[in-house]
Every structure is written in C-alpha cells, then in structure tokens.
C-alpha cells in the first residue's frame, strides 16, 4: 500500500521527541544537570556532554537512515528488492569507525577517573570527617581539638555534613549495617558505603551554600528518606565556629545527661 510509507512518520516522531526533549530540557533548571559546584564535577559534565554529542549524532544519523529507508523502500507495484548479501568494504568501515570512537571515549575517561578514585591521587590532607551510613541516617564524626578521630572530644552529627569551600576534602566512608551510597548530585560524587570497608572519598566545592546528600543504594524500607544536609562554609573560620558551637551543644547535652543519671 502506498500509505505504508507513512510509518516513517511514527519513527521520525519518536526520534524528534527524544532529541527535542534533551534540547528543551537544557533550559530548564528542573531537568538538566544540576548546577555543578565541584572541580571534578566540571570534568564529569564535560565528559557527559561529549558522550551526549557523539551519541546524539549517531542517534540522529541512524534514525534518519531508518526513516528514509522506510519511506523510500516501501513496497509498491513494480518495485524489486536489490539482491545483495552484504559488502565487505562497508562492514570494515562501520567496524573501524565506531571502534575508534569507542576506544577514544574509553581512553578519554581514564584521566578523570584516576584523578577522582585512585588511592594514589588522594590529596594529602587529613580527613574532615568519618561518615557512617546506618539504616536510615548518615552519621558524621569530626575530630575535636586534638585533631584525631575516635577520641573523647569527637564531634558527632546526624544527617548534617559540613566542610570548607575551595579545599580538597576527604571523608572516610563506612557502613554500620547494609550497603548505602554516598551521593552528592551537585558534586557528581557517588561512592557506595560497604560493610567492612573504609573507603576514602575526596571532593571539593567552589561554592559556599547548602546542598543535599542522597543515599543512592537501596538500604531497606526507609531508604527513600535517608537524606542529609550538606553545608559548605565559605572559609575555615566559619567552619571552626560551627564545629565549636556544635561541640558546646554536645557537651551541654552530655552534661545534662550525666547529671540526670546521677540524680542531680
């Protein structure tokens, strides 16, 4: 039937919808990549966009070929199919070109990947906190005045993470029960917290402000609400002040508790 070639429109429609939704969402803060605040996030976004462009071009090209083929080669009276089993030259071309693009893509990622995750590229700084995932909360342990973790003057917070802008920051990530995943969408950082392992994670921020911490690995019935607040302080002084304030509150609460226990 002659109208059969109209099927090309259906496939074209889906391709236009796909391409269009990416183009359209670019201008909508609710849809596109969240505004990035970290230095590795910039590199990750760059890699994302490169892949998006390459795959976008391949996608559009294949869909055009597909729709053109449907439109042009639809059955019609007198049409005869071209009797051909294949062509070696074409096979070689469409093997070598995608292969080189894929190898390029893989190699192009390596630098960023090793910079973010390899132990050898961890910045030489003290960890700002030990972060422990537990059903269904994030526990943060900061060092007190002695600058050492797991001593009596440690400062503990729940779902409240603070660090300083502009400085490479390390956390030691642990789990107390099941798998969790430490995900900072505005920083493009994700690392699973694994029972029995202590995993150092580093990142930084070029913006002070408040952000969100997501648990990205299914951890039980309350997984959806395992959310943390992230506060990036503009400078070390602000951070120290917050630390001091928290420490004072913590000491006061503990004192009250001790007094209560002692019947005071």
């Amino acid at each position: 039937m002659k109208t059969d070639r109209l099927w090309a429109l259906l496939f074209a429609f889906s391709a236009i919808f796909a391409t269009g939704s990416f183009i359209y969402s670019r201008n909508n803060a609710d849809w596109w990549l969240l505004p990035n605040v970290s230095s590795m996030g910039r590199e990750i976004d760059h890699l994302f966009i490169i892949i998006l462009v390459i795959t976008g071009v391949v996608f559009i090209a294949t869909q055009i070929v597909l729709c053109y083929a449907i439109w042009t080669f639809a059955d019609a009276p007198g049409r005869k199919a071209h009797y051909v089993h294949g062509q070696m030259k074409l096979e070689v071309i469409w093997t070598i070109i995608p292969a080189s693009i894929l190898v390029f893509l893989a190699l192009y990622q390596m630098g960023t990947w090793s910079k973010i995750k390899f132990r050898s590229s961890l910045p030489k700084v003290q960890p700002v906190a030990e972060v422990t995932g537990r059903q269904f909360q994030w526990m943060f342990r900061y060092a007190g005045d002695d600058r050492r973790l797991h001593t009596d003057d440690d400062i503990l917070t729940i779902n409240d993470f603070h660090f300083v802008m502009g400085e490479p920051t390390i956390i030691h990530l642990k789990s107390q029960d099941v798998l969790h995943s430490f995900f900072l969408p505005q920083f493009r950082i994700k690392q699973d917290a694994v029972p029995g392992l202590t995993i150092p994670v580093w990142f930084d921020s070029d913006t002070a402000g408040k952000f969100e911490l997501v648990c990205a690995e299914l951890c039980g019935w309350g997984h959806y609400k395992m959310r943390g607040n992230v506060t990036v302080h503009a400078n070390q002084v602000d951070f120290e002040a917050w630390l001091k304030k928290t420490k004072t509150e913590q000491d006061r609460d503990q004192l009250a508790l001790v007094n209560a226990v002692n019947g005071g």
Partner: peptide, 30 residues
C-alpha cells in the same frame, strides 16, 4: 572494565548497521 564495556558496544553497532543495510534497497512490507 570500562574498556571492555566500550568494546561490547561495537558488535551491537555492527548489528544495527547490518539491519539498516538489510532494509536498504528492499521492498518493505509493513
């Protein structure tokens, strides 16, 4: 694993191109 995973996209690409090649110049019955 990234390298091997990228490479597995290759045979899938080859298959896609061959499917398009099959339709190209045919007498397509819908």
């Amino acid at each position: 694993f990234m390298l091997s995973t990228m490479m597995i996209a290759l045979p899938s690409a080859i298959k896609t191109f061959n499917w398009l090649g099959t339709m190209w110049g045919g007498r397509i019955q819908f």
